[in-house]
Every structure is written in structure tokens, then in C-alpha cells.
């Protein structure tokens, strides 16, 4: 546990180079967070299908844990993006396609967790959540496309593209290192969250017995 946290802090402090101004450093958090959030929701999607198909309890535990961690990471994406946006764009928030899509992703998966939490029986909650996860994951590309059109067809060129030209290799290496570190952190959190969920379910089952 301390090992993973230590590794993560070390890697965050490690890349000392900043080419396009210091603020660019936020990218080392922001980009890995986005990728991990998408990874988490891909897991939710696949595990949801697997659960509906095979009814394997483990798939549901995986989907639930990945969704919760994904929501945490998406929230961090929004916060770090906002903090990055203020000095670079001059505003905390703009209704740009990527931002809007990420915000909707956040809402969809908060809905996913709420369905699960508020459904009367657990089996039903698991099925409903799986369906919401599948629909949400399928919807994300469509949402992104629609929002891109909305910004381009309606108000062309009112905002600057978020990412500049291709990222220089000097920035790529720390980015990869950070992505690797956060991936490890993500997997670590995922395993622990799954263990917690399994413990919770076993406790519930045992309580029903006694």
C-alpha cells in the first residue's frame, strides 16, 4: 500500500522539465486521468455485458469497483482540466466538445452508481446498472460527435483547440511514466475496491444466515 503511494508521489515529482511554461505540468496529471477514466468505463462496459450474459458475480464486482474509481478519476479530470484551463484559456470552463463530453460521462456514471445504490434488491440493481453502463459507454462516442458538430456547425472558431501541435518527445517520456504510475495506482485501487466489495457481499450473505 505504502509502496504504490510512494511510487506515485515519486513519479509525480520526478519529471522536472517544462517546455511550454510550467502550467503544462498539469498535463501529467490530466492526461493519464482521462485515459484511466476511459479505461475504467471500458471495463464497466465489458464487465456489464459479461455479467448479463454469464451471470458471474465476479464480473459485477469488477464493474461496480471500476465504475466507482472511474467516477473519482473523471471528477479529477474535470477539476484538473478546469485548473489547467484558467491560466491557458483564461476561463475555468468553456462549453468545448471535450469538456462537455467528459462532464456528461461523469453524470452518466454517477447515475450508474445511483441506480445500483437505490435499487431494492441487489441482483436487480446489478442488472440495471449493467444496462446503464452499456448504454452509457455506447452513448459516449455519439455524444462526443454531436457536441463537436454543435460547436463547429453552430459557432465556428470561437474557441481555440485545446491541444496544440504534436507533443514534443521531451514531454512524452514523463507523460508515459506518469501514465504507467497511475495505471498501477488504478489497478491497485481496483483490486482493493473489489476485495472490499466481496467482503461486503459475504458479510451481507452471512448476516442473512444468522
Amino acid at each position: 500500500m505504502l509502496l504504490a503511494v510512494g511510487l506515485y508521489v515519486g513519479l509525480v515529482l520526478a519529471p522536472p522539465d517544462a517546455v511550454q511554461g510550467d502550467v503544462q505540468r498539469i498535463m501529467y496529471l490530466h492526461l493519464p486521468f482521462v485515459l484511466i477514466a476511459y479505461l475504467a468505463f471500458a471495463i464497466v462496459f465489458l464487465a456489464g455485458i459479461a455479467y448479463l450474459w454469464k451471470r458471474d458475480e465476479w464480473a459485477d464486482v469488477l464493474a461496480h469497483s471500476a465504475a466507482e474509481i472511474g467516477v473519482v478519476f473523471t471528477g479529477l479530470v474535470l477539476v484538473t482540466g478546469s485548473i489547467w484551463g484558467k491560466p491557458t484559456w483564461g476561463v475555468w470552463w468553456t462549453w468545448d466538445a471535450r469538456l462537455t463530453t467528459t462532464l456528461l460521462l461523469f453524470f452518466i456514471f454517477v447515475g450508474y452508481l445511483m441506480v445500483r445504490a437505490l435499487t431494492e434488491e441487489r441482483g436487480r440493481g446489478a442488472r440495471y446498472a449493467a444496462i446503464v453502463g452499456i448504454i452509457g459507454a455506447l452513448d459516449i462516442p455519439i455524444i462526443h460527435m454531436s457536441v463537436v458538430w454543435w460547436r463547429t456547425l453552430h459557432q465556428p472558431s470561437t474557441f481555440l483547440r485545446a491541444q496544440g501541435p504534436a507533443i514534443a518527445p521531451a514531454l512524452m517520456i514523463p507523460l508515459f511514466v506518469n501514465f504507467g504510475a497511475f495505471l498501477v495506482l488504478f489497478l491497485f485501487l481496483l483490486v482493493r475496491r473489489m476485495r472490499l466489495e466481496q467482503a461486503r457481499r459475504e458479510a451481507e450473505a452471512l448476516e442473512a444466515l444468522t
Binding site: 456528461l104 453524470f107 452518466i108 447515475g111 445511483m114 441506480v115 437505490l118 435499487t119 431494492e120 436487480r124 440495471y128 444496462i131 446503464v132 448504454i135 452509457g136 452513448d139 455519439i142 455524444i143 460527435m145 454531436s146 457536441v147 458538430w149 454543435w150 456547425l153 453552430h154
Partner: peptide
């Protein structure tokens, strides 16, 4: 789904609105 969920009146808009964004955007635009 919402009929089997607690707080069902809120649940439907909560689930439907974010997912339906493409249709809402498309009809309005």
C-alpha cells in the same frame, strides 16, 4: 427500470437526460 428504484421520480431524468443529449441537441439545432 425506475419503477423498481427508490426515488424513482428523480431517477428517470437523472438517467435519461445525460444519455439523451445527442437527440436533444440534434432536435434543437
Amino acid at each position: 427500470m425506475a419503477v423498481h428504484v427508490r426515488a424513482r421520480e428523480v431517477m428517470l431524468p437523472l438517467l435519461l437526460l445525460p444519455v439523451a443529449v445527442p437527440v436533444i441537441l440534434a432536435t434543437i439545432r
